[in-house]
Amino acid sequence: MTTILRDELHRDSRGTVHAVYDDNGARIGSIVRQDARPHTPFGPMPERWYVSDAGNGVRVSSATGYDSADAAITAIRNTRDTSPALARTESGLTRRDETVLIIERTRFVQPGAKQQAIVEAGFTPHGYARRLAYLINEPDPDDAEEVALAHAVEAFDPLLVKRLRRLRDRHTRAGARSA
């Protein structure tokens, strides 16, 4: 059974953002509910649902409006089923996750080159940072999917993951001292 919960952290100019979760409780994307508008210059507008993302930062065409939340969720599922970015590679990671780690592994010399690489890979800077943080976080030992992802990330480039965790911890400690 799919669950839809209001997402208080994210905003969209079209309306209210709702996170969509699958039967296992994993977030599979988000949809935006645009309320019905009875008085517009073009006549009454019915309630519409738009897909915001299909999870893991995979963007979808947000121009298509759907009559129901179920139709928007079907669009999310179709995108996830056909997206090459969400296909697993031999490493056990998705191509998008590998791209994040490759960007982090790369040494950029020119100013702004990393930001350009992030945008060219199809991420927003915020979405990239969120995905990177998720990839290097310690897994919940009770969540088999998180544990498998953590093992795949560490196997992909163990030294990179250790360095990123060390940097994160250093920033966390520095922030705690200054507060």
Rank of each mutant, 00 (worst) to 15 (best):
V109F: 13
A36G: 07
T106F: 09
E104I: 05
G122P: 07
A75T: 03
T94Y: 14
E98A: 13
Y128L: 05
N137K: 09
T124E: 06
R107F: 12
T79E: 12
S52Q: 15
A54M: 01
D140T: 05
Y50K: 00
A133E: 09
V109M: 11
E98I: 13
R131P: 02
R88S: 13
G112Y: 03
R88I: 10
E120D: 15
T106G: 07
P46L: 10
T99V: 08
A71D: 15
D35Y: 04
V109L: 13
R59Y: 08
I28E: 00
A87V: 12
P44H: 01
A121P: 09
N78E: 15
Y134A: 14
D97F: 05
S91A: 13
N56C: 10
D143N: 12
E146L: 10
M45V: 13
R88H: 12
H39W: 09
A75P: 03
T64M: 13
P139S: 07
E120N: 14
P84F: 05
Y134D: 11
G43S: 03
V100S: 00
A113H: 10
I102H: 12
A85N: 12
P141Y: 07
P125T: 05
F108M: 10
T40W: 09
Y128E: 01
S61Q: 09
I31N: 00
A75L: 07
T106V: 09
